[in-house]
Design a protein around this nucleic acid. Structure first.
Lengths: 146, 146
DNA sequence: ATTTAGATTAGAATGATTCTAATATTAGAA
DNA sequence: TTCTAATATTAGAATCATTCTAATCTAAAT
């Protein structure tokens, strides 16, 4: 944890208790939280924290390439502190997001006429599916999943 | 156009003038419009059209698998009447979206432990980059692009 | 022409995200 | 340690995309 704080301070990132709480929450977090998830969690320890702080911090982290923003969900953005190149799969029933660590970089070569038009900087594969839990529930009837 | 209308009527899709205007606008449209783009366009001929109509129609089309919803933009959903499997690239400066007709289906095989957890139904590759126009403008200074 | 299921509308409601302006805090300098 | 400037925090308003509501209207089958 100490190292985490030092690491950000070095980068000229001003550290407040709220920010430290956000960093702690994100550190090693594989749940792909949305802004609201982060807010709810931080609020436990800092009841007066505001959404502005959460969004400001996320923006700062995003600008410094410390978190990745993910567009896989049709409703809202999700955040991922894991910066290793990887992809995601989302359950279309419960919106759970899982990581796909598979290197498709060789395969995802763009056609020449696109390369001619765009200077590509990144790519990301979104997979959609139904998770095990939701498959069971669907057979049962009602739709619900953790 | 006649065929387009017949095609939808067959599918039990009740056709109103507003819906026909939306269908016309979408037919062969490669601009990947968002709901607001569609609304603005229809409003020219039907000044009283409401957002509800646009969204209702898009929902009906989506449910019938007549348009695809795209999550590549961080701000809003875009719609694509082209249902052939393909992918997209978005300019991170001006948000222009272009099509990438390249078949990656063989390459995008999921790892077994994911297949075990998810019953995958679809995938989509988002490419991010800077379009030619915006590359020029960036060198110049200001950021703007059609 | 009648009927009815389904569509349209204005506008309110919701949810995510951004903005504002006043206040408070961090981190570095004195 | 105290001071200061730059930056962060806050509540709440504002914005934007999207969905909902309830009253009214219309397509299309009879």
């Amino acid at each position: 944890m100490k190292e985490l704080i030092a690491k950000y301070r070095e980068k000229g990132f001003k550290l407040t208790p709220q920010r430290i709480a956000i960093l702690k929450f994100l550190d090693g977090n594989t749940s792909h939280p949305a802004a609201n998830d982060i807010y709810r969690n931080i609020k436990k320890d800092y009841p007066t924290v505001s959404f502005a702080t959460v969004y400001n911090t996320l923006q700062a982290l995003r600008d410094r390439r410390e978190v990745a923003e993910i567009t896989i969900d049709f409703q809202k953005k999700h955040y991922d502190p894991d910066l290793r190149p990887h992809h995601h799969i989302i359950c279309t029933e419960c919106n759970k997001i899982a990581d796909v660590f598979q290197d498709y970089s060789e395969a995802l070569r763009l056609p020449y006429h696109i390369k001619d038009e765009f200077q590509a900087t990144a790519n990301h594969v979104n997979f959609y599916g139904i998770c095990k839990k939701c498959q069971k529930i669907k057979k049962g009837g009602t739709k619900l999943c953790a």
